[in-house]
Simulated assay, not measured.
Amino acid sequence: MESVNTSQKSYTKLIWVLSIAIPVVVAILLFTPEKIQGAGDWVYMLPHLNATFNSITTVVLLLGLYFIKQKNIKAHKSMMSIAFILGSLFLVSYVTYHSTADSTVYGDINGNGILDEAEKSKSLTFWRGFYISILLPHIVLAAVVVPFVLFAFYYALTDKIEKHKKIVKWTFPIWLFVSITGVVVYFMISPYYLN
C-alpha cells in the first residue's frame, strides 16, 4: 500500500511540475527577444499546423462528449486520447515556432513587428480589440487547463472515475474553449503572417 501512495505522490508531483514548467517555458519563449537561429522557413508553416491541431481537437473533444453521453466508454477513451496527443503535438509545434520566429502583431501590415500609427489607422480598432479580448482569455485558460487535463487523464488511467468525473466538469469546457478560440485567433491573425 505504501508503494501505491508513493507512486501516486510521484505522479501528482510530476503533474504539478509540468503544469508550472509548461507555461513558464512558453512565457520565456514568447518574451525572449533572441530567437534560435537556423531553423529555416519551414517554421512559418507551424501556425497553420497549430490551427489544424486545434480544429481537429475541437471535433474530437465534441465526439468524446458524444460518446460518453452514449455510454460508449471505449470510443470516449479513444477520442480523449487523440485529443491529448493532438494537444501534445500542438505544444511541441507552438514551442518550436515561438523559439525560432518572432511573434506576429495583429495589424502589422509590413511585418516589422511594430504597430505604427499608420497601421493602427488601417486596422479597425474594433477588430483589434475583439482579437485581444479573445486572445487574452485563450492564453490564460490554455495555461490554466494544463493541470486539469493532466489530472483528468491520470484519474481515468488509474480508474479513479469519480475524481475523473468531478474534474472534467471544469476541464472539458475550458479545453473546448481554448481549442475553439485558438482557431478564431489563428483566422484573425493569419492575414498578418508574412510567410
Rank of each mutant, 00 (worst) to 15 (best):
G107P: 14
T104E: 05
A101Y: 04
L86T: 06
F67I: 10
S78Y: 12
F67N: 11
Y94T: 11
N72P: 06
I85W: 06
A83Y: 04
I82C: 09
S93V: 05
K71C: 08
Y94Q: 06
T96V: 13
L86R: 04
L65A: 13
F67G: 08
V95M: 12
S81N: 12
K74G: 10
F67Y: 10
F67T: 04
S88G: 15
A83W: 02
V105K: 04
F90H: 02
G64W: 03
L65Y: 11
I73Q: 13
K69I: 10
K74C: 11
T96P: 00
Y94D: 06
G107T: 01
H76K: 11
L86V: 10
A75L: 09
N72K: 05
L89A: 13
A75I: 08
A83T: 03
A83E: 02
V105D: 00
K77F: 10
F90R: 01
I82P: 03
Q70A: 13
Y66A: 13
A75F: 04
S99V: 05
V105Q: 02
F84N: 12
T100S: 09
F67V: 06
N72T: 04
I82A: 15
T96D: 05
K69F: 13
L86S: 02
I85Y: 08
A83D: 02
T96Q: 06
V92K: 04
S93C: 07
D102K: 15
K74A: 15
F84K: 11
D102A: 14
Y94K: 02
I85H: 06
S81L: 12
K74H: 14
Y106P: 00
S99W: 01
Q70H: 09
A101M: 03
H76D: 04
L91P: 01
K77S: 09
D102T: 01
G87N: 00
T104L: 08
F67A: 05
D102R: 13
I82Y: 15
Y94W: 02
G87F: 02
T100Y: 01
I109E: 11
S78G: 14
Q70W: 03
M80G: 00
I109H: 10
I73H: 12
